[in-house]
Simulated scan of single mutants.
Amino acid sequence: MDIDQVAVVEIDQEGRLLVAPATHEFPFAYREAMEVSWDSATRTLGSPIPREWSYGRWFQIIQSVASAQGVTLVLGSSTRWVNVPADIQTDISEAAVHAA
Score class of each variant (00 low, 15 high):
residue 59 F to K: 04
residue 20 A to E: 06
residue 92 I to E: 05
residue 95 A to V: 14
residue 51 R to V: 11
residue 44 T to H: 09
residue 43 R to L: 12
residue 52 E to C: 04
residue 20 A to K: 07
residue 22 A to F: 05
residue 39 D to W: 06
residue 46 G to F: 06
residue 60 Q to E: 15
residue 67 S to D: 02
residue 85 P to W: 05
residue 51 R to Q: 14
residue 46 G to K: 05
residue 56 G to V: 05
residue 26 F to M: 06
residue 38 W to N: 06
residue 29 A to L: 02
residue 47 S to F: 13
residue 72 T to N: 08
residue 74 V to M: 08
residue 78 S to M: 12
residue 78 S to G: 03
residue 21 P to D: 02
residue 38 W to F: 13
residue 68 A to I: 02
residue 24 H to N: 01
residue 38 W to Q: 03
residue 68 A to L: 12
residue 58 W to V: 03
residue 22 A to N: 04
residue 37 S to K: 08
residue 39 D to Y: 08
residue 89 Q to P: 02
residue 13 Q to D: 12
residue 94 E to I: 08
residue 12 D to K: 06
residue 73 L to V: 13
residue 11 I to Y: 12
residue 30 Y to C: 05
residue 83 N to S: 15
residue 22 A to Y: 05
residue 14 E to G: 00
residue 31 R to L: 09
residue 37 S to A: 15
residue 12 D to T: 10
residue 19 V to N: 00
residue 75 L to E: 02
residue 9 V to W: 02
residue 65 V to D: 02
residue 88 I to M: 11
residue 88 I to K: 15
residue 23 T to A: 00
residue 46 G to I: 03
residue 31 R to N: 09
residue 95 A to G: 10
residue 87 D to V: 03
residue 35 E to R: 07
residue 67 S to G: 00
residue 16 R to D: 04
residue 89 Q to K: 15
residue 86 A to W: 03
residue 56 G to Y: 04
residue 51 R to Y: 09
residue 19 V to F: 02
residue 27 P to H: 01
residue 96 A to E: 09
residue 27 P to E: 02
residue 17 L to T: 11
residue 16 R to F: 07
residue 73 L to I: 13
residue 22 A to C: 01
residue 57 R to G: 01
residue 42 T to H: 13
residue 67 S to Y: 00
residue 37 S to H: 07
residue 72 T to F: 05
residue 76 G to T: 13
residue 23 T to N: 01
residue 32 E to R: 13
residue 80 R to Q: 12
residue 17 L to F: 08
residue 25 E to R: 05
residue 11 I to F: 04
residue 10 E to N: 13
residue 48 P to L: 01
residue 38 W to A: 08
residue 93 S to T: 15
residue 25 E to H: 09
residue 77 S to L: 12
residue 73 L to R: 10
residue 71 V to H: 00
residue 23 T to R: 01
residue 44 T to K: 00
residue 10 E to D: 08
residue 66 A to T: 00
residue 54 S to H: 10
residue 11 I to G: 07
residue 65 V to R: 00
residue 53 W to V: 08
